[in-house]
Design a protein around this nucleic acid. Sequence first.
DNA 1: ATTAGCACTCTATATTATAGAGTGCTAATA
DNA 2: TATTAGCACTCTATAATATAGAGTGCTAAT
Lengths: 344, 344
Amino acid sequence: MEEFLNERFQEVLHCIIEEYIVTANPVGSKFIAGKCSLNLSSASIRNIMASLEEKGYIHQPYFSAGRVPTSSGYKFYINSILKTKKISKQQKEEIRSSFNISGRDIKKILWQAVHLLSEISHYMPIVLAPERTYANLLHIEFIKLDKSNLLVVTVFDGGIVDNKIIGADRDYTQAELSKYSAKLNEIINGHNIDELKDVILKGIDKDRESFFSLLNGIIFNFDLVKNKIENEDDYLYIGSRMNLFDEPEFSNYEKIKSLIKAFEDKKTIIKLLELAKQKEGIHIFIGSDTEWSDINGLSVITASYHSKKGFAEGSIGLIGPSRMNYAMAIPAVNYMAKLLCDII
Amino acid sequence: MEEFLNERFQEVLHCIIEEYIVTANPVGSKFIAGKCSLNLSSASIRNIMASLEEKGYIHQPYFSAGRVPTSSGYKFYINSILKTKKISKQQKEEIRSSFNISGRDIKKILWQAVHLLSEISHYMPIVLAPERTYANLLHIEFIKLDKSNLLVVTVFDGGIVDNKIIGADRDYTQAELSKYSAKLNEIINGHNIDELKDVILKGIDKDRESFFSLLNGIIFNFDLVKNKIENEDDYLYIGSRMNLFDEPEFSNYEKIKSLIKAFEDKKTIIKLLELAKQKEGIHIFIGSDTEWSDINGLSVITASYHSKKGFAEGSIGLIGPSRMNYAMAIPAVNYMAKLLCDII
DNA sequence: ATTAGCACTCTATATTATAGAGTGCTAATA
DNA sequence: TATTAGCACTCTATAATATAGAGTGCTAAT
């Protein structure tokens, strides 16, 4: 897919991108001539730049302006040129130790991941909560709210708790409900949602009619829990937007507005992170990629995280300008994903 | 506190504010002369305006510009001039019927209130979740997560559910926990958080040492629940910011940024709504009020809502430009608060 | 193959000019 | 005495113009 670029071309592209990342201003040939390791005059650089432009890696905003990297330019840079900085052991230790995991509350853990990544990167982190399909059910409890409403508390391993209010077909007493809860808990032990429907229907024989509606309620609930975490707030965690707004590309009203609008509807981001979840390791969406065409000028670095059992559980990402500091940001996301694997 | 203004002055102030609310541009004497019901020339209006300015109700951005209302101007307008529009019965019915309260999930209800108020008003609604201090406890349930962690589910009337993971002093079996849960539930029935500590300590005699740490855990939890809902997400609900950003006063980069910054930290808003909660009925914070000095140019209309039992439970608000359409917005907030009273 | 030199293009910024809205004051009017 | 027409004045917002400078592509020389 990607064309071969000789070393000289790569070096020039490299310089342009790294300079653009810092200044956000179009980069001129004179600057490159002075800065980059090739000892060439600005005129030669200009020739190379003209070539790079023809190949689509850089772009002139207008005649006789400097050059700005294109999406393909970034892509090539990331795939072939970029050397990411490793995070020092000391820094790793610092990050890990600032994770306060007392309580094992998944919500808090994810928020902490968001805040930490925000602090490290100065971009906008996003985290998708772990999938529950493969989570093992630990406990189900029915609690009476009133004559016609019951609360179903569903607890999965990893400290994931789901509350759901369902209607009751008749007026159960709490004692009854406790009995049914206990009965169910005997059966469900250690099964995941997918297996559960069968397990339950098999496990219950005689009592079936007596708490049929309860069963229906929770089975319906499983479907909901499995397919989508109902409340977006508990599904997608978004870090501070301020970091993005401080970037020069969003220093005008129209752009900032389009940005806010894009993030107000969380569906785009959710879709992206769900995509990332299915893939192993780091993935990067740049500028006008098909999966991420909504906002021009933004890139997203994503990584999936998963428990030690091995299947995909969730994903974490970092949204920044396309012009973002990939060398720093990629290992940051990567390390945070690893950390989540360890903790969850 | 507020000076007396004769009818003529009031009428001019009225015209200025209502015009400014619509156009967001300084209002000139000529326009007022043509528009308002007083049959006076622009020269006479100018005299009146000069007086109004001296009294502090209006203000000239610069010499020979039109006049803009000040905070005092708005205050006077709201207290003495404004005639709010009543919401038609038909509209009330529409709003009420679009409330989908199946499930009685408090979270969903509050979000719905936010979305509805946003739609009606085109400003930014905020809702503070009901206080739990006076909520009656319905049920407590201990659920085993693993050797050293327990989940405490606390259910209050009104469908409020609180999950909290606490450490265990030893390895309880689920059967044990269920027993303790049942025992506690016998005692707590119908008491509110404030009374609960005593009730529990009195109700448990012999078993006290056997599940002392559990008790400690939940009592500590009560304190948390009572004093503050730990997770801001479950406490404060904020509507779409877009409506605000569409207002002309925020059509420049600096202002929009200060606005975002102000809202990113939810504490200011929470403080305001907690203040509003303690007061009966509608309250309005304008521009540079001491309680709301953070953002110039914004006003907040607040109302407390409460269950039929009568004590304050929560509050709802609407943030808009000071230049907001109070005649429409005040009854909207008021009605929504009433609606919340009915539903909760 | 590389580069110095140069004319050229385009933007960004500052500068100036112009139009118009709104004022305060004064003198005339009812 | 209260009101108003008239007018000079102030200030902003917009447009028009000028200037500087950054960066280019091309050509001819090295």
